[in-house]
Computed example of a mutant assay.
Amino acid sequence: MASSKFSAIFFLILYAVLLYFVFTMQNMVAMYLMAIGMFLEACEGVYCNFFKH
């Protein structure tokens, strides 16, 4: 749920790095990145729904 161009590019880069870690079999780092990415997307959704007018 990218609400701006900056956040869309940020999450694209984050998930590209995540894919790199998955393909190089560094699964724990990939899992940490995935959890961070999901948490940040949820925070962005809450911000957009409750605080942005």
Results as ranks from 00 to 15, higher is better:
residue 40 L to H: 05
residue 24 T to G: 00
residue 2 A to C: 04
residue 10 F to H: 05
residue 30 A to L: 01
residue 24 T to N: 01
residue 26 Q to W: 01
residue 37 G to C: 00
residue 6 F to D: 03
residue 18 L to G: 09
residue 16 A to E: 11
residue 28 M to F: 11
residue 14 L to P: 10
residue 21 F to M: 02
residue 32 Y to Q: 04
residue 25 M to W: 14
residue 36 I to C: 08
residue 51 F to I: 06
residue 46 V to H: 06
residue 35 A to P: 07
residue 10 F to N: 04
residue 3 S to L: 06
residue 41 E to C: 10
residue 35 A to N: 06
residue 31 M to K: 15
residue 16 A to T: 13
residue 25 M to N: 13
residue 40 L to R: 00
residue 21 F to K: 02
residue 32 Y to L: 13
residue 30 A to G: 11
residue 4 S to M: 05
residue 1 M to H: 02
residue 4 S to H: 00
residue 27 N to Q: 09
residue 48 C to D: 08
residue 22 V to I: 11
residue 4 S to N: 02
residue 49 N to W: 05
residue 25 M to H: 15
residue 52 K to A: 13
residue 14 L to Q: 07
residue 11 F to S: 05
residue 33 L to C: 07
residue 50 F to H: 07
residue 37 G to D: 00
residue 13 I to K: 07
residue 15 Y to S: 13
residue 41 E to A: 12
residue 47 Y to L: 09
residue 52 K to C: 14
residue 41 E to T: 07
residue 7 S to F: 06
residue 13 I to Q: 01
residue 45 G to D: 09
residue 8 A to V: 11
residue 21 F to S: 03
residue 9 I to R: 12
residue 31 M to R: 15
residue 47 Y to Q: 05
residue 10 F to T: 05
residue 28 M to L: 15
residue 18 L to F: 12
residue 34 M to D: 14
residue 50 F to L: 10
residue 44 E to L: 07
residue 17 V to M: 11
residue 25 M to D: 13
residue 50 F to R: 09
residue 25 M to P: 12
residue 49 N to Q: 02
residue 38 M to T: 13
residue 1 M to N: 09
residue 24 T to F: 06
residue 18 L to E: 09
residue 24 T to I: 04
residue 19 L to V: 08
residue 37 G to W: 00
residue 20 Y to M: 12
residue 45 G to Q: 00
residue 6 F to M: 05
residue 29 V to K: 02
residue 8 A to K: 13
residue 19 L to C: 05
residue 47 Y to P: 03
residue 17 V to Y: 13
residue 23 F to H: 01
residue 26 Q to H: 08
residue 52 K to S: 10
residue 25 M to K: 15
residue 50 F to Q: 01
residue 16 A to Q: 13
residue 53 H to N: 14
residue 33 L to A: 09
residue 29 V to C: 00
residue 34 M to H: 12
residue 14 L to N: 13
residue 24 T to V: 12
residue 28 M to I: 15
residue 15 Y to G: 11
residue 44 E to K: 03
residue 5 K to C: 05
residue 11 F to Y: 06
residue 5 K to A: 04
residue 24 T to Y: 03
residue 30 A to Y: 07
residue 39 F to W: 10
residue 23 F to T: 08
residue 10 F to Y: 14
residue 41 E to F: 04
residue 4 S to L: 00
residue 49 N to G: 10
residue 21 F to I: 01
residue 6 F to E: 07
residue 22 V to Y: 07
residue 36 I to G: 09
residue 44 E to Y: 04
residue 50 F to G: 07
residue 1 M to P: 10
residue 48 C to H: 13
residue 49 N to P: 02
residue 1 M to G: 03
residue 46 V to K: 03
residue 19 L to T: 01
residue 26 Q to N: 12
residue 9 I to C: 02
residue 12 L to M: 15
residue 7 S to I: 07
residue 6 F to S: 05
residue 39 F to M: 09
